[in-house]
Amino acid sequence: MLMYTLKRLLFTIPTLIGVAVLVFFMLRIVPGDIVEVKLRGDGGNVTQEVVEQERKRLGLDRPLIVQFGDYMWGLARGDLGISMWTERPVIEEIMIRLELSLEVAILATIFATMISIPLGTAAALFRNTWIDYVVRIVTIGGLSIPSFWFGMIIIVSLLTFFNWLPPITFTPIYVDPVANLSQLIWPALAVGYRYCAVTARMIRSSLLEVLAEDYIRTARAKGVYEKLVVSRHALRNALLPAITVMGLEFAFLIGGLVVTEQVFNLNGIGQLFVQSVSRNDFMLIQGMVIMIAAFYVLINLAVDLLYAVFDPRIRYGN
């Protein structure tokens, strides 16, 4: 198992290098950088000479391939470079905001797990009844309703019905859990709806598949109680694919956060990403993309390993 884990871990490296290469060159398809934008953005009369100087200072006057080498060497040492806009280390910019986004993601996961398992199970057991139809519509709704719109509706409802609004500055959970949760539970709800929908749908379909398998039929034929069949045999096996989906969706939550954080005025990774895109801060974009990709790949790996542990049919080793 250890060897397998190490081997899989090793395999993620080429993917991440690929991500770095791809992003680096993709962002430089269109020539130009933000030095000029940054200097002239203040409205001062900036001469071409000053622009060149600043480029030189930031090392942007060097050939692309040298910059690339420099960047990769930095990556190898765990250095994501300096934000072109704020001139602070990319890692630092990310770290300030990571806690908040991660917490929203975790809250959303908890929320999704609690709701999706009963929902998915009910839909599968009462297949093609009104229960199934309701669950299907609710879950497809989760895939269809934009999380940012859902977020807007949440805010507007809170203001209208309770004349209350969640706090807008972040307090860590260990400082003030109430302030923390009352701020973050709402965005978690907004992004969690989709998450919950995806998982519930997965549970429904994999449960249906499992219920059709031979050993369940055997169990039923042997007269085992229906409840027991579902809880002991079927659900356990059906949860495996659900775990995969949950893992992947967790890594993808950043996608939902990118837009939802705008709505809730949250100072998180998503907001930072949108800002770095609208400012063309390539270093920051690169750094964040690599971090997000690494996160995704590692979660993916963790899910696979978990799968291997739970499902004896999967053999690791080769």
Binding site: M152, I155, L159, N163, W164, L165, P167, I168, T169, Q262, V263, F264, N265, N267, Q271
Partner: peptide
């Protein structure tokens, strides 16, 4: 004092109404 950045006008108005600012 604390100057809180509210990048969306809607967020600013909501915060004002809610008393956060």
């Amino acid at each position: 004092y604390r100057g809180i950045f509210t990048l969306q006008a809607a967020a600013m108005l909501n915060a004002l109404q809610g008393g956060q600012v």
